[in-house]
Simulated assay, not measured.
Amino acid sequence: MKQPLGVILAGGQATRMGGGDKCLLTLGGMPILKRVLDRLEPQTDGVILNANGDATRFADYNIAVVADSITGFAGPLSGVLAGLDHAAQLGHTHIITAAADTPFFPCDLTPQLLLAGETNGLALAASPSGRQPTFGLWPVALRDDLRAALDDGLRKVVMWTQKHNAGTAEFPDDAAFFNVNTPEDLQKAETML
């Protein structure tokens, strides 16, 4: 199998941060998005960004920006679908997703997800605190099924992935999936660096 296309999910509204793009906040002198890109790029065959609104705000990153095709902020699954549709156009069979506000995710995310998804090509990451539903391996072949589920109102990642018997890639450290949702989280991330 060709290496998956990387998809950074940044389509949320960042309400707990007061709006705006969490991934453009600076952490240790560098935007969080740059940290996520630097981690995901070596693990994938190219990376795109799922974000809504004016794409020019990401012009400095020289990255394709793909908006949700489902209107009304339908959650991370909508970003996954946008990534799957873009991957299909590029001839990829799978995507790997990572959250744009999670700068410390594992450097072996892709190989572990590929192992966990050997049976059916679908897998989610998990840590001791539970599943990490924005970190996953997703087969392009399931994009029409996902589109139908979203059109029917489904918004919960785990409800859809369980239906398709997703594998689980277990990671030992919750801190790897620490995400920056609030100003306090950003301060904590600075100390974690």
Score class of each variant (00 low, 15 high):
residue 50 N to K: 08
residue 54 D to M: 03
residue 55 A to C: 06
residue 56 T to Y: 03
residue 57 R to T: 06
residue 58 F to W: 15
residue 58 F to Q: 10
residue 58 F to T: 14
residue 59 A to M: 12
residue 59 A to K: 15
residue 60 D to C: 10
residue 61 Y to G: 13
residue 61 Y to K: 13
residue 62 N to L: 13
residue 62 N to D: 14
residue 62 N to P: 09
residue 63 I to T: 15
residue 64 A to P: 13
residue 64 A to S: 15
residue 64 A to V: 13
residue 64 A to I: 15
residue 65 V to H: 08
residue 66 V to T: 12
residue 66 V to N: 07
residue 66 V to S: 10
residue 66 V to E: 09
residue 69 S to G: 11
residue 72 G to I: 08
residue 72 G to C: 08
residue 72 G to V: 08
residue 73 F to N: 15
residue 74 A to K: 10
residue 75 G to P: 05
residue 75 G to S: 03
residue 76 P to Q: 14
residue 78 S to D: 03
residue 79 G to P: 04
residue 79 G to D: 04
residue 79 G to H: 02
residue 81 L to V: 07
residue 81 L to C: 08
residue 81 L to F: 03
residue 82 A to E: 02
residue 83 G to P: 07
residue 83 G to R: 06
residue 83 G to F: 01
residue 85 D to N: 13
residue 86 H to N: 13
residue 86 H to G: 08
residue 87 A to G: 12
residue 88 A to Y: 06
residue 89 Q to P: 11
residue 91 G to Y: 03
residue 91 G to C: 04
residue 92 H to D: 11
residue 93 T to L: 09
residue 93 T to I: 06
residue 93 T to R: 12
residue 93 T to S: 13
residue 94 H to G: 12
residue 94 H to Y: 14
residue 96 I to M: 09
residue 97 T to Q: 12
residue 97 T to N: 12
residue 97 T to H: 10
residue 100 A to L: 04
residue 101 D to P: 05
residue 103 P to K: 05
residue 104 F to K: 10
residue 105 F to P: 11
residue 106 P to G: 02
residue 106 P to Y: 01
residue 106 P to S: 02
residue 108 D to C: 06
residue 109 L to M: 05
residue 110 T to H: 08
residue 110 T to E: 13
residue 110 T to V: 14
residue 111 P to T: 10
residue 111 P to V: 11
residue 112 Q to V: 10
residue 113 L to Y: 08
residue 114 L to Y: 05
residue 114 L to Q: 14
residue 115 L to D: 11
residue 115 L to V: 09
residue 116 A to G: 05
residue 116 A to Y: 01
residue 117 G to C: 01
residue 117 G to T: 02
residue 118 E to D: 10
residue 118 E to S: 13
residue 119 T to G: 12
residue 119 T to H: 14
residue 120 N to Y: 01
residue 121 G to I: 02
residue 121 G to T: 05
residue 123 A to L: 03
residue 123 A to V: 04
residue 124 L to K: 06
residue 125 A to S: 03
residue 127 S to C: 14
residue 129 S to A: 10
residue 130 G to L: 00
residue 130 G to A: 01
residue 133 P to M: 00
residue 133 P to S: 00
residue 133 P to L: 00
residue 134 T to W: 06
residue 136 G to V: 01
residue 136 G to I: 00
residue 136 G to Y: 00
residue 137 L to Y: 07
residue 138 W to F: 13
residue 138 W to M: 11
residue 138 W to V: 05
residue 139 P to N: 07
residue 139 P to W: 02
residue 141 A to P: 14
residue 141 A to D: 10
residue 142 L to G: 08
residue 142 L to M: 11
residue 143 R to S: 12
residue 144 D to W: 02
residue 144 D to C: 06
residue 145 D to I: 10
residue 145 D to L: 09
residue 146 L to E: 04
residue 146 L to N: 07
residue 147 R to A: 12
residue 149 A to G: 02
residue 152 D to A: 15
residue 153 G to L: 01
residue 154 L to R: 09
residue 155 R to M: 03
residue 155 R to T: 07
residue 156 K to A: 10
residue 156 K to Y: 11
residue 157 V to M: 04
